[in-house]
């Protein structure tokens, strides 16, 4: 467990030393969501309707930005090989890296989303559901994304390829995440969607580090 915490601490520290990368993804999220009203028009009813989808799609894309860097630097300087050789199971260390990625790319989105939701005329209840859905959904994005990041490690055109691999797998998260907010707005209650999102998160938390580990071992062969 100490090793996992050390990995998380190290990744957070590295990110804090180079804040621009984290902030770029955040500003990307803000800018993309702000572009939609400009493209679609300022009618509050329409904006309120598209808000969950827009915020979720923007969150997916913003998470994608940081994915490629999840293992790239460690691969380049040999840290990854040391992790593979270390006595701590690689799956745990990978779990730590995924957790750090979520804290840097997912958590800020969760905290920022209500502010952006206000631009789309969402009420307080909907904002709460949106935050909760993102809180459950963004770790899922980091977990699934880690598999793609490990598979495309060190490949030509890795970034575009990564989005081609990962975005179709994000579909359930998008549907249930945006669906939760929509169901709340429609007065149906978001419980079902949130439960499914949590179930997917549990499933991914179990399998994704394992698949990522297998992919990393192949990449390092």
């Amino acid at each position: 467990m100490n090793a996992v915490l050390a990995v998380i601490r190290r990744d957070l520290l590295l990110a804090m030393r180079r804040k621009s990368e984290v902030l770029t993804a955040l500003f990307f999220f803000v800018i993309v969501t702000s572009l939609f009203p400009l493209g679609i028009g300022p009618e509050p009813a329409l904006l309120k309707k598209i808000a969950p989808g827009v915020l979720w799609v923007a969150a997916l894309l913003a998470t994608m930005l940081g994915l490629q860097r999840m293992f790239a630097a460690d691969h380049a300087d040999g840290t990854l090989e040391q992790m593979v050789l270390s006595p701590t199971p690689l799956g745990l260390l990978v779990g730590g890296k995924i957790a750090a990625h979520w804290m840097l790319s997912g958590l800020p989105l969760v905290l920022l989303a209500p502010v952006l939701g206000l631009q789309f005329d969402l009420d307080v209840g909907a904002l709460g559901v949106l935050m909760l859905a993102l809180l459950l959904g963004t770790p899922l994005l980091s977990l699934i994304g880690a598999i793609g990041a490990a598979l495309t490690l060190g490949l030509r055109g890795g970034g575009v390829l990564l989005s081609l691999l990962v975005l179709p797998l994000y579909v359930p998260a998008l549907i249930f995440g945006a669906g939760a907010v929509e169901a709340h707005i429609a007065g149906l209650g978001a419980g079902g969607h949130l439960s499914l999102l949590a179930a997917l998160l549990a499933l991914a938390a179990f399998f994704a580090p394992w698949a990522t580990t297998a992919a990393l071992r192949i990449a390092l062969e």
Partner: peptide
Amino acid sequence: RRADKAGAILALVGVVNVPIIYFSVKWW
């Protein structure tokens, strides 16, 4: 060899996901 193995992992991840995707869009 790496292409085969990486593709294999992706295919297996995909095959786990296909039913999840199917039911999620079905309810959608």
